[in-house]
Design a binder for these strands. Structure first.
Length: 267
DNA sequence: GTGGGATGGGCAA
DNA sequence: TGCCCCTCCCACA
């Protein structure tokens, strides 16, 4: 389900609940028993998000790494635990709160070295205050692969998913198919700033809204469902800016959405 | 009721 | 490039 905005929010919320607390960790469906045994009873020092990855620092060279992938989900609530239901990979709890994790791509204990190796493969994340766009821009500018692919490559830029990819390209007026090298530096700088702003808003609102009110059929108030995105998941529907039917096509196994008029590409 | 797709990514080939 | 992982939800019957 989540792109970077959601992951950062999870890190923030879960960190507020558990940081500095001794926690109980268990694995009701048995698929994380050994890992849970390494962590349970320890103090959770901090929860951090990098791109779409979460790290739970248990100190003494033990880091819980979680990646939700396409299927992973969290639930949370106040103690006591609800009855475990379904394939429940992981629970973390203290006396007050619990969280549950299902269906993640990754749920594993890493040492600090392994964690650092993993972090080294994640590009700058617009939601991290210390992230600098220079490396992202340089990498895109010397690449012959398409800007649509590059934005989804987590080693180029961290935290962008299929929604932000589609919407950032629309807002920048870029064709997903043009090469990274063909995009001017100025426009890439702007794209980074836009990513940062949209993702921050998405984190606060717990919802990805990329349309400007003036472009929405109902221009006042909160974006209605179906009006939150320009291109994403709007195949065949009229573009909010020009009325042209939104197109979609697979790109590297994911569905790409774009407006052939507003994102015509290079002249 | 059910079948396919989905806001990912690693890996083999 | 395609397959696997393995969960939820929605459109469609």
């Amino acid at each position: 389900m989540p792109e970077g905005n959601e992951l950062h929010r999870f890190a923030e919320q879960q960190g507020e609940k558990f940081s500095g607390h001794q926690v109980k960790v268990d694995a009701p469906n048995g698929r994380f028993e050994e890992g849970a045994a390494l962590l349970t009873g320890r103090k959770l020092l901090a929860v951090d998000a990098f791109g779409k990855h979460l790290f739970y620092n248990f100190g003494r060279d033990r880091q819980l790494h979680v990646h939700l992938g396409l299927f992973g989900r969290f639930r949370d609530g106040a103690m006591p635990h609800p009855e475990p239901k379904g394939a429940l990979r992981l629970r973390i709890s203290d006396e007050q709160h619990w969280i549950e994790l299902r269906g993640p791509t990754a749920c594993e204990v890493l040492n600090d070295t392994k964690r650092d190796e993993l972090l080294a493969r994640i590009g700058p994340d617009p939601l991290r205050e210390d992230a600098k766009p220079a490396a992202v821009i340089a990498r895109i500018q010397r690449s012959k692969s398409s800007i649509g692919l590059l934005l989804m490559d987590q080693s180029v830029i961290g935290g962008i998913g299929n929604i932000y990819r589609a919407e950032l390209l629309f807002r920048a007026g870029l064709s997903p198919f043009q090469t990274g090298a063909s995009v001017e530096k100025k426009r890439l700088n702007k794209l980074w700033r836009d990513a940062k702003a949209l993702m921050l808003a998405g984190m606060k609102d717990r919802r990805i809204v990329t349309t400007d009110p003036k472009d929405r059929p109902h221009s006042t108030g909160r974006a209605r469902s179906g009006e939150a995105h320009y291109a994403y998941h709007r195949t065949g529907k009229p573009c909010f800016r020009c009325g042209t039917a939104i197109k979609s096509a697979p790109m590297a196994g994911r569905t790409l959405y774009w407006c052939p008029q507003c994102q015509a590409g290079l002249p």
